[in-house]
Amino acid sequence: MSRVTLSRIAQETGVSVSTVSRVLRGAGDIGPQTRARILAAARLLGHSPDGENRGRPRSRPSQVVDLVLGHFHDPYTDEVTTGARTAAAELGYDLVLTAERDVPDDDWPMRIRARGSAGVVIGLIMPTRTQLAILDEAGLPIVLLDPWSEVAHPLTSVRTTDGAGGAEAAEHLVEQGARRFIVVGGAPSYRYGRARVDGFETAVRALLPDAEITRVHGDWTAPSARRACLPALAAARGEGPIGLFACSDEMAAGAYRAAADLGLDIPRDLMVVGFDDVRGAKWLHPPLTTVRQPIREMASAAVRALLEPTAGDQRVIELPTSLQVRGSTVRATEG
């Protein structure tokens, strides 16, 4: 698009050239009325916001599906990618990995439109209204995979039973003899993290109304969880077996390091349960008891919800968690 065309659209709509540019590139979070006015003016002036060669192919159906994530190449997203790729291949589609960059001028929705994707799975991020509108105007189906928060748009989402998983972790720790508890929540406090913590604490209160629960927070990384757990573990040391629940396996690994710093034995002094069951959970010493999130299956279900006509109009697809009991909660006296 030339500078003259940008200027003409700006004059027609009474906004700045930079605002026009952001709307036509799908960048930023512009109000829906302003965005609609700019797009309408662009069409009236004879210019498609996609450019002449952009948008979905007209000659044949697309055989490409986009998976949009904020980052790649960690244990969780590796599982997501594997599940999505397998499902796409089984249905005769190729999977394109699209990185969402947390910068104002990121134009990933326009790049997807330019490819002519058959649909978009958006995982672990929350797209802006403008980004969703660009995809919707191109007629692209969208499925959210484990979204950070709820959205007002009528979109299908795939997730797991986070609250039930937290409750099962609590029940297991109580059965194993824990009477004092530490909960490592995540910051930012995403939807799924809140559900896991709420499920855990509700179950503990139902089973042991007078139990002491200390809540700490980490930024979803092991080092931050280690720092957060140190004072809580020091205060609880010597008061019987402690039950610790971390909202992710990564933060559970940080709790292991804090326990080592204080000379606490796992599971004799401290019993630990994580969440996710990524591949590294089995490599900790002792192996980590964790709530398995069916990550590959969730990614597969998201792709199938895009492509299979039998998926219907179900708005929330939930796959169940399951507790994987390992050495971090099996006390030595029990074999």
Rank of each mutant, 00 (worst) to 15 (best):
F181N: 08
A169M: 04
D136W: 10
T130S: 15
G335V: 06
A258S: 08
A164R: 13
S7A: 08
E250P: 03
R113S: 11
L145M: 02
V183M: 14
L144N: 01
H285Q: 11
D102Q: 15
V80Y: 06
A42N: 09
T321S: 14
P231G: 13
T5H: 13
A42T: 02
A258I: 04
E308K: 15
A10W: 06
A259P: 05
P294R: 00
L67R: 10
L155S: 02
V278Y: 08
T130C: 11
E137P: 15
P57H: 08
A167K: 00
G31R: 15
I122T: 05
S16F: 00
G185F: 06
T19N: 09
A152P: 06
T160W: 04
H71R: 13
F200D: 06
P104H: 04
G193H: 11
V17L: 14
R215G: 11
R215T: 11
A88C: 04
P61N: 02
R35F: 04
L69V: 01
Q131N: 10
D107Y: 14
P286G: 01
A195C: 07
G254V: 08
A42R: 10
R179N: 10
S224Y: 01
E308L: 15
A152G: 12
G116F: 01
A302T: 00
R196D: 10
A138T: 02
L264D: 05
L288V: 05
V103C: 06
V103N: 13
A178N: 11
G177M: 06
P188M: 13
I112H: 08
W283H: 07
L207R: 15
D146Y: 15
T82S: 11
A332R: 12
R205L: 03
Q33N: 11
A40N: 11
